[in-house]
């Protein structure tokens, strides 16, 4: 009867059955809120982001926050050991997380983390990639599409320039990185479904 919200940001992934679903959700919300605020601060630091309309800033963050967090925290997933280290410091094996009901989403997260980790990005490259991720988020609801597209183009150019100047002999890295964008969209959808399922039927 335990209530499970096995997200790496959750300090209490397995809650006793005696706690109400609302209590479990509110406790989890307190865990992910600081991370969401950090993504908003990160967005504000992206050159050009604050020139977008207020509405479009919110729309991009709504669809891109989880994707940025997935990139930021992909180092919590250890594909060699097949473990995930939660922000509460506890490390969980793949098998124990599967037992907690994180099967297909977990596999997709491991797969993504392994692919991204294998590219060996430097911290500044990773930050620029996260900016591209955020501005490449779902366009539904965006009003000033041209302004978002222009910002995206500039960020992609900056990322390509940074990567190709550092690794002039590796022409495959940049396209490999862009291929991770659709992976993140798929993960975002799976993740939303999982959380909404908890909200509907914990």
């Amino acid at each position: 009867g335990a209530k499970v919200l096995a997200c790496p940001l959750n300090s209490c992934p397995v809650a006793p059955a005696s706690r109400s679903s609302q209590e479990v959700w509110e406790s989890f919300s307190q865990c992910f809120t600081p991370a969401v605020k950090e993504v908003v601060e990160f967005a504000k630091s992206i050159p050009g982001f604050q020139t977008l309309s207020q509405h479009d800033q919110v729309m991009l963050l709504k669809s891109g926050t989880f994707q940025v967090l997935m990139v930021r925290f992909c180092s919590l997933f250890d594909p060699k050991e097949r473990t995930v280290t939660f922000l509460n410091g506890q490390t969980y094996s793949l098998a124990s997380l599967r037992a907690l009901g994180m099967s297909s989403l977990l596999d997709a997260m491991f797969d993504f983390s392994e692919k991204l980790g294998s590219l060996g990005l430097e911290p500044d490259e990773m930050a620029l990639f996260m900016a591209v991720v955020l501005v490449s988020a779902d366009r539904s609801g965006i009003v000033e599409v041209g302004a978002v597209e222009l910002l995206q183009e500039n960020l992609i150019k900056a990322l390509r320039s940074l990567i190709t100047s550092r690794r002039p002999d590796d022409s495959t890295l940049f396209p490999k990185l862009l291929l991770r964008l659709p992976d993140l969209r798929t993960l975002n959808n799976q993740h939303s479904d999982k959380l909404l399922a908890f909200r509907i039927d914990p």
Binding site: S29, Q50, Q57, S192, L195, R199
Partner: peptide
């Protein structure tokens, strides 16, 4: 549940976190 970010409370957190910045732009 067509808007997961709203239903999960994400939109509210984002709007509040952006608020200071947004108020500055409105002025």
């Amino acid at each position: 549940f067509s808007d997961p970010a709203s239903n999960l409370g994400l939109e509210d957190i984002i709007r509040k976190a952006l608020m200071g910045n947004l108020e500055e732009r409105q002025e």
